[in-house]
């Protein structure tokens, strides 16, 4: 059952933990695709120790671009399901099975992880506020009722992945993706997942100023699409 599942991990300057993250995922899912987004460290080399496939952007194009590269590659390799997974070790491998369950049961085509339905271990209050604002933004602008708008843990059936075309290269891709999910008309569901906040993942995460930039990029992207 796990053979057709491709887990896509976009990574930028993650040499410290990418091998371990990829290895942990690969123990359960044999097709792990790490997309090194033009890192300045040796992320790609480190990833080879754990991932099945390592793709490298020659120059940095942003997380959205890296995700789409991984999704396109997974589809070309015949993926039946595509899962997106963060490189900083904040996701749990066991949550992937929970995301895939409704897809395999035919209840949905897209499963989105939600830390607010599940658990967010050691989440700082400021991060919670920013994420709640993102949820509000998603409800007002994207017109989609979600409890967690920017969770990197998601699963798609092949049919759904084929309809995804991320054009916003940087972090605004999460909102664009939700837009495309709504427009696709495919059934989606939210699944409780656990996010483990560590000093490392918090250092890599978004600041409030970053969140403002994401909103700006998203609006410009929609206007000039």
């Amino acid at each position: 059952m796990a053979e057709g599942v491709f887990v896509v991990i976009p990574a930028y300057n993650e040499s410290a933990c990418i091998a371990q993250v990829a290895r942990e995922v690969r123990e359960a899912y044999p097709n792990v695709v790490v997309v090194d987004d033009g890192s300045s460290d040796n992320t790609a080399e480190a990833a080879k120790a754990g991932a099945t496939y390592v793709l490298r952007h020659p120059i940095n194009r942003g997380q959205g671009a890296a995700l789409q590269t991984g999704i396109t590659f997974a589809l070309q390799r015949g993926a039946s399901h595509v899962v997106t997974f963060d490189a900083d070790g904040q996701h749990r491998v066991e949550d992937i099975a929970a995301l895939l369950a409704p897809l395999r049961a035919g209840e949905a085509e897209i499963a989105l992880g939600s830390r607010f339905l599940g658990d967010a271990v050691d989440m700082p209050a400021a991060r919670r506020r920013v994420l709640k604002l993102a949820v509000l933004f998603t409800r007002v602008v994207n017109r989609v009722e979600l409890t967690d708008a920017h969770n990197g843990l998601r699963a798609f059936t092949r049919r759904a992945a084929e309809r995804i075309d991320i054009t916003l290269d940087r972090m605004a891709h999460a909102s664009e993706l939700i837009d495309q999910v709504r427009r696709s008309g495919l059934a989606y569901t939210e699944i409780p997942v656990q996010i483990r906040y560590t000093e490392y993942s918090l250092a890599k995460g978004q600041t409030s100023r970053g969140a403002f930039r994401i909103v700006l990029h998203y609006i410009l992207g929609r206007v000039f699409q």
């Binding site: 044999p30 997309v35 033009g38 790609a44 080879k48 991932a51 099945t52 496939y53 390592v54 793709l55 490298r56 952007h57 020659p58 120059i59 194009r61 671009a65 789409q68 590269t69 396109t72 590659f73 070309q76 290269d169």
Partner: peptide, 16 residues
């Protein structure tokens, strides 16, 4: 971005 993507996919390191 499209060019970068095509290059990354073409030069994929495969270890299966």
């Amino acid at each position: 971005t499209l060019l970068t993507r095509n290059m990354a996919i073409r030069d994929a390191h495969i270890s299966e």
